[in-house]
């Protein structure tokens, strides 16, 4: 069964999500990947104010292709999440409620997800043209100089993803491959 969630996500939404659930997200999310995370993390370490509010938000690890005329956004599939592992716990500590990416996370991130009551969603890597259909508009928030890596706000409608790690730390990347392992 697919669960529909209207953003901003609530703590009760998060508690009801179980690893493996198919989810359609509607509302507003922010974007950021390697270079933006590095900058945000450095500001956090220096105790400075961030140019974007993280509390209650969901961040999508994406660097979109440019939009062709007539399109709201260009193809925009998830990038590999593990590269953000170094930075993610600091962002979750500031109230970020969710992350959307692809692939495994390290133990520190999983512990931080559990500690902060957050959720990690997986979108399908390489399904960028399809995923972009659920992104209705975009707005630049900061770090325009980073080009595709700038931080943007996306308005999404039925954005498809799967709960990869839930707030109890259940992790589909651990549990699911084991079911099909024939080695």
């Amino acid at each position: 069964m697919t669960k529909k969630i209207t953003l901003p996500i609530t703590d009760s939404d998060i508690r009801n999500l179980k690893a493996g659930d198919s989810v359609l997200l509607s509302g507003s999310i922010i974007t950021g990947r390697d270079a933006a995370h590095k900058r945000l993390f450095e500001l956090i370490q220096q105790g400075k104010e961030l140019p974007v509010k993280l509390k209650g938000e969901i961040i999508y690890y994406v660097g979109p292709a440019p939009a062709k005329p007539g399109y709201a956004v260009g193809p925009a599939g998830p990038t590999s999440s593990y590269r953000m592992d170094k930075y993610a716990p600091a962002l979750l500590d500031l109230g970020l409620k969710g992350m959307i990416g692809k692939g495994a996370r390290n133990k520190a991130v999983i512990d931080s997800i559990v500690k902060n009551g957050c959720v990690y969603f997986a979108a399908i890597g390489g399904a960028a043209a399809l995923i972009a259909k659920s992104i209705k508009s975009e707005e630049l928030l900061c770090y325009e100089d980073l080009g595709t890596e700038a931080v943007r706000r996306y308005t999404v409608e039925d954005f498809p993803c799967i709960v990869a790690i839930d707030c109890q730390g259940n992790n589909v990347y651990e549990t699911e491959p084991k079911k099909y392992c024939r080695e």
Partner: peptide, 27 residues
């Protein structure tokens, strides 16, 4: 789940070809 992922990848690649847009954002 795997079948559904493959179906979405196939659909994605068909959309990209029909609309002449990149099939993955990482070109």
């Amino acid at each position: 789940v795997g079948k559904s992922v493959l179906a979405q990848i196939i659909e994605n690649d068909k959309i990209a070809a029909a609309e002449e847009i990149p099939l993955c954002q990482d070109t």
